[in-house]
Design a protein around this nucleic acid. Structure first.
Lengths: 107, 107
DNA sequence: TACATAAATTAGAACTTGATAATATAATGT
DNA sequence: ACATTATATTATCAAGTTCTAATTTATGTA
């Protein structure tokens, strides 16, 4: 069966909501390259400290990312390697111009 | 590069929002088995007519599904086959109990 | 100890989303 | 033409989300 059972739909929808935001999805993409601390993410995204912190908190509560304190900094990283695949699929859907070569090769 | 370029992040986040809801994700999953008309989806999901219609409308505007009128009925179907892959990844993440066998075989 | 830096928390306003109920439109059968 | 069935639209209200500004907590350092 190629579907999500009813019992898990709620969790999956909640998980999607956790990344269904420009800034949060941007953070997820940055973290694909490895762990980053909050200041680095502020730099990378241009978000305000408070705003970013709140989004990171939400992503952490939703199980998208984990954090680890190293001295004065808090480093965030992707919690589940499946998110690499998720981003890959999103790229297929929303960056068609980047994926045309592959798509054409399949025909 | 395994990431979504900034220029497409907004679209991707918006697309995610279009399915980041229990009912809409449920509809998407039902449509994986083929086109369905509104009444069938009402049956399948238990949603009210008006509510479902509004969610279908949103998913259509966001490019997740297409519709086609056949006589008195309107049939909806998935707009992009990549959504099969998206659901597959979601299953890996949010239905771990269903995927354990595969995961263990990989070790 | 006092100060600086990193990050989290809180409160509140503005905006968005989702559900319901009521109404409208469109196709079909009598 | 009239009733019936299928779907869409509109208005409204409650609930949820997001941003900003201010405050707090924790860590490292002079």
């Amino acid at each position: 069966m190629h579907t999500i059972p009813e019992s898990n739909i709620k969790d999956a929808a909640q998980g999607l909501r956790a990344i269904a935001h420009e800034l949060r999805l941007g953070v997820l993409c940055h973290l694909l390259n490895g762990p980053m601390c909050v200041n680095e993410l502020i730099e990378a995204t241009g978000a305000s400290q408070s705003n970013l912190s709140q989004h990171l908190s939400k992503m952490r509560l939703m199980g998208i990312i984990n954090n680890e304190k190293r001295g004065q900094q808090v480093y965030y990283e992707i919690a589940n390697p499946e998110f690499f695949n998720l981003v890959h699929v999103l790229k297929q859907i929303y960056c068609p111009e980047m994926c045309q070569a592959v798509t054409e090769a399949e025909h």
